[in-house]
Nucleic acid binder design. Structure first.
Length: 631
RNA sequence: GCCCUCGUAGCUCAGCAGGAUAGAGCAAGUCAUUCCUAACGACUAGGUCGGAGGUUCAAUUCCUCUCGAGGGUGCCA
């Protein structure tokens, strides 16, 4: 990869410079060397600012340092060096290098940007588990879930591209009070449809009746509740349980379908009820077991200052006695976790005085189970309203012996929808919740995914419905897809017969199909060293060359981008990249004709078109957005 | 009150492990099209990077304070 090549060359040059005592007081160096693209193309292609950073330690002027480094720098094979501004070392890459970089794209094709096997071997063998959406099976998925789904799924794909072993999971929260509430709601919804009670009698604290009626259609529930449909049986506990189970599976199916429709797939659907409540060892389920595990954990408890003897050597606040206590304790007949000892602001209840376990208790058991299944890096994508749970779960993980850094939390901020120019906040109370399937029907999968991934997770976002609905130039998704379709179109035209406009006669296609295949699969995959000649002022204007150079630099950026974006867990970087790349491609397309040029120039440009097509398609595929051949 | 995010062009957002003139798209205005898809392109205009201090050769980027928006702060999930 370009940046690591350059980084190595600089490291060597700096070592040599130090050995030659050219770098003043700097005696050794092994820091990360930042290799970045020049913001201004007039400066060059690649900029390294290391001389500025070393200035202080070396006690030399940055420009002096830059000169010393350059003296020992061997980048002749890559390009020309210049020192500019306060001490930047700029590299203008030569065409041989750019062509060889482009050849890599043609060689790797659909895998270009994916971390290679060799690179993978160097990485720490982490196993990631990314948990996202995890909605209760008590309703449809709204846009907030949609954003979690798209960001979580895109991140999982990105990590996979970056070479990590990653698995994704949906935690089905199917135990406890919300399932109780669901059963109640489902029972009442059926009773209403059967005419046993009126809508006015629907429980006030139940889930919205409309959403219940959406899934509990008579033809569905009648089969399940055969024999329980009379007023008396339907009112009973058995009917309630059956109705609850039915509603649960219907909502789960609905959620699965919606997620599948936006190409969000999970490796596992993890049921809280089945895995944590039902599986028992020695008559104890995993939640009870985790409480015992925590009970066995000892925490240092400090008695401070009270028995302190005043004296010359006494320091206020230093504990006299430190003794060990269990990480859980009983108080007011509830079971508490000493979360405060693990960084939380206060202790947390695990088992309520009524005997039920809290959500936290289940969540701790769940996370323990994730580790037990062999995952060592857990990423949870949560709605920002779950922010308050962070310290509790982190503390518990630490208490049971894991490094809290093994858990990463990504909080997704709310989405509001802008419709007819007016921003509407999503509110259950106001009935302004927008569901994923509704929006999907309006804008389609590609636009929905793109818009939801296109901003940082911890920014609140506004979904501009009108913009996403536009099937034209204003819509960035189409702008990017159009770039791909345009490149595809060139290839179609190359192998299609042409009509001569002058005399309306048919002319042969420029390439036979197999000729084009050979070009793409053989010629473009070999380094022919003719870009130097073809991409010169002999065949191109200064403006054209500038665009071409920018395009190539952008294309070969993908592998580094994948790694950087994965490292900071930022799939939106890919969408930002795609917008830039598409823009450069369109610009290139407008400035450079392919068909009708002399063969050598045509092939050179075609090589760029083909490479652009590959890179755009791959980047889109990271986001699970389609790359149409035709629009 | 305390904790966590966010505040960059009229709108939606990039840029920020400090670096050269802060960038895109939309909206506004001008131009361009006999030719591979105009779902394109070129150009113009639009910014005290919320505000005030501090650290630094260098701050939109780091630190402190402050203002504004959102979220959290249950024996809810």
């Amino acid at each position: 990869m370009l940046s690591s090549k350059i980084r190595n060359l600089f490291q060597i040059a700096i070592n040599k410079a130090i050995a030659a005592s050219d770098l003043g007081e700097l005696k050794s160096f092994s820091d990360y060397i930042d290799v970045e693209r020049c913001k201004n193309p007039d400066h060059g292609d690649i900029a390294v600012s290391i001389a500025l950073k070393l200035s202080r330690e070396a006690k030399l002027a940055p420009v002096k340092i830059a000169q010393s480094i350059v003296k020992h720098l061997d980048v002749v094979a890559i390009g020309d060096i210049s020192i500019a501004g306060p001490g930047f070392i700029n590299i203008r890459l030569n065409w041989d290098f750019l062509e060889s970089a482009l050849v890599e794209i043609h060689q790797e094709k659909d895998n270009y940007g994916r971390l290679s096997k060799e690179a993978r071997a160097d990485m720490e063998p982490h196993r990631f588990l990314i948990e996202y959406v995890s909605a209760n099976p008590t309703g449809n998925l709204h846009l907030g879930h949609g954003r979690q789904a798209v960001l979580g799924n895109s991140l999982a794909r990105l990590l996979d591209w970056a070479g990590y072993d990653v698995s994704s999971e949906f935690y089905i929260n199917d135990a406890g009070v919300q399932i109780e509430k669901l059963s109640l709601s489902a029972q009442a919804a059926i009773q209403i449809q059967e005419g046993h009670i009126t809508k006015e009698n629907y429980p006030v604290d139940a889930y919205p009746l409309d959403s219940m009626l959406d899934v509990l259609k008579p033809e569905i529930y009648k089969a399940k509740l055969k024999g329980y449909l009379d007023a008396a049986s339907l009112a009973g506990d058995q009917a309630k349980e059956i109705a609850g189970k039915l509603a649960k599976s219907l909502f789960l199916d609905l959620q699965k379908k919606v997620l599948a429709d936006i190409e969000v797939h999970f490796d596992t659907w993890y049921s809280e009820n089945e895995n944590l409540h039902q599986v028992k060892i020695n008559d104890k389920n995993k939640i009870e077991l985790i409480c015992e595990t925590l009970k066995a954990v000892k925490v240092k408890q400090e008695d401070v200052t009270e028995h302190h003897e005043a004296g010359e050597n006494a320091e206020i606040g230093v504990p006299l006695h430190a003794h060990e206590v269990s990480a859980v304790y009983e108080e007011d007949s509830a079971l508490w976790f000493r979360a405060k000892s693990f960084g939380d602001e206060r202790d947390r209840v695990l088992r309520k005085s009524q005997g039920m376990f809290t959500y936290l208790a289940g969540d701790i058991a769940y996370h323990k189970d994730k580790f037990d299944r062999g995952f060592d890096k857990l990423i949870n994508v949560w709605g920002s309203d779950h922010h308050g749970q962070e310290l509790g779960i982190r503390g518990a993980i630490q208490a049971i012996g894991y490094n809290p850094d093994q858990l990463e939390l990504i909080f997704i901020q709310l989405v509001s929808v802008k419709e007819d120019g007016v921003e509407k906040k999503m509110s259950k109370r106001k009935g302004t919740i927008v569901n994923v399937d509704e929006l999907l029907a309006e804008v389609g999968k590609d636009a929905l995914r793109f818009f939801l991934v296109d901003s940082q997770a911890n920014n609140r976002m506004v979904f501009d419905l009108a913009l996403a609905q536009k099937h034209d130039k204003d819509n960035p998704v189409y702008y990017i897809q159009y770039a791909h379709a345009r490149s595809a179109s060139i290839f179609r035209n190359l192998v299609s017969p042409r009509i001569n406009i002058v005399d309306n006669t048919e002319e042969a296609a420029i390439f036979e199909v197999d000729e084009l295949e050979r070009l793409l699969n053989e010629e473009f995959k070999t380094f022919s060293a003719n870009f130097k000649k073809l991409f010169s002022d002999e065949y191109h204007s200064e403006e054209q060359l500038k665009t071409i150079r920018s395009l190539v630099l952008e294309l070969i950026e993908l592998p580094k981008l994948v790694i950087d974006a994965a490292d900071i867990r930022a799939p939106y970087k890919i969408s930002v990249y795609l917008k830039n790349l598409a823009s450069l491609f369109h610009q290139f397309y407008n400035e450079n004709r392919i068909i009708g040029e002399n063969e050598e120039v045509m092939k050179a440009r075609l090589s760029l078109v083909a490479a652009s097509k590959i890179v755009i398609k791959n980047a889109l595929s990271i986001l699970a957005i389609s790359a149409p051949e035709k629009m």
